[in-house]
Simulated assay, not measured.
Amino acid sequence: RRESMKVKCVGLTSRLDSLEAMTIAEKAAQLLQGRGLKVVMDNELAGKVGWIGETSNLSEMEVDALIIVGGDGTVLRTSRIVKSNIPMLVVNAGTVGFLSEVNPSELDAAIERLAKGEFQVEECTRVKAKVDDKVVGDALNEISIITKTPVKVLNLTVLKEEEAIISGRMDGLIVATKTGSTAYALSAGGPIIDPQLDAFVLVPLCPLKIYQKPLVLPSSAKIKVVIEESGSNALVIADGQVQAEAPASSVVTIEKSAKKSLFIRLWRSFYDKLRERLVRDV
């Protein structure tokens, strides 16, 4: 984790299909201005709420911190777009919200701590993928390889530094970061990775070889997944949002991205959030 820093200018974005989220974002803007902080609002959000202050595209935003109001999907989308040196503070306005740090009722206290610099910044590894020479993109949570045709199975050979570590017929494969270990990978039977451990989790989806279990690899590993000709064509999906086709006989290369995502941490420990996640009815 990094030590906190002085915040003078704060960006603001939210999910746009939720009146609740946009209302929380407007309240956040008022609280930030009330503490003497400059506010730059995402163009799309500004258009929705009638904001007359400074605006910017997310991809071009130059701010000391960014407040995101929304669920995990909003966070995954935003983290892909914004510059990697901007710490993000997430206010939950979604279904699961495991990536969030603040509940709406805590907004005032959270912004007070942000203004005072009373927070830490956590660096989170991202993972990237390409199919042969075509770049798919990078992900905060996971790269998923699934069959292109429903019910058909893939035949995969997974290599770590050219050594086969998983092989055979299965519905697909998840390669998750430590952040993503509590998302799709967890639901598919993968282990939870402590945030102090920088690792990737490989989770085979419904393998016919039932002894093939999830593997934990160092995030420095270069992973190749061969889509064998004797199986179905595949899709490679980054965080459920960006996808590319991987036809039979292609090779998917997966490795750590040069880009990192930064998150502002205030008061909730990883294990506090984990306990909430495991008992929440979603």
Rank of each mutant, 00 (worst) to 15 (best):
E3Y: 12
E3M: 09
K6H: 07
S14W: 01
L16G: 03
D17F: 11
S18P: 02
E20F: 12
K27F: 04
K38F: 03
M41E: 04
N43H: 11
A46K: 00
T55D: 00
S56V: 03
E62A: 13
I67C: 00
R77E: 14
T78D: 11
S79D: 09
I81C: 14
K83D: 11
P87Y: 09
L89E: 13
V90N: 06
N92T: 09
V96K: 06
F98N: 00
F98E: 04
L99G: 01
S100L: 02
N103E: 15
N103P: 02
A110H: 09
A115K: 14
E118A: 14
V127M: 00
K128Q: 11
A129P: 08
K130D: 00
A139M: 07
N141I: 00
N141T: 09
L154R: 03
L159M: 09
K160W: 03
E161V: 04
E162P: 03
I174P: 07
T177K: 10
T179D: 00
G180I: 03
S181D: 01
S181Y: 04
Y184E: 00
Y184P: 02
I192H: 10
I193A: 05
P195R: 12
A199K: 07
V201P: 10
L202W: 03
V203S: 05
L205S: 10
C206H: 11
C206S: 15
P207Q: 13
L208G: 02
Q212L: 14
L215W: 04
L215E: 05
P218Q: 13
P218I: 11
S220E: 14
K224L: 05
S230A: 14
L235M: 12
G240A: 12
Q241M: 01
A244Y: 08
E245A: 11
A248C: 15
S249V: 03
T253P: 03
E255F: 11
L262M: 07
Y271R: 13
R275D: 10
D281K: 15
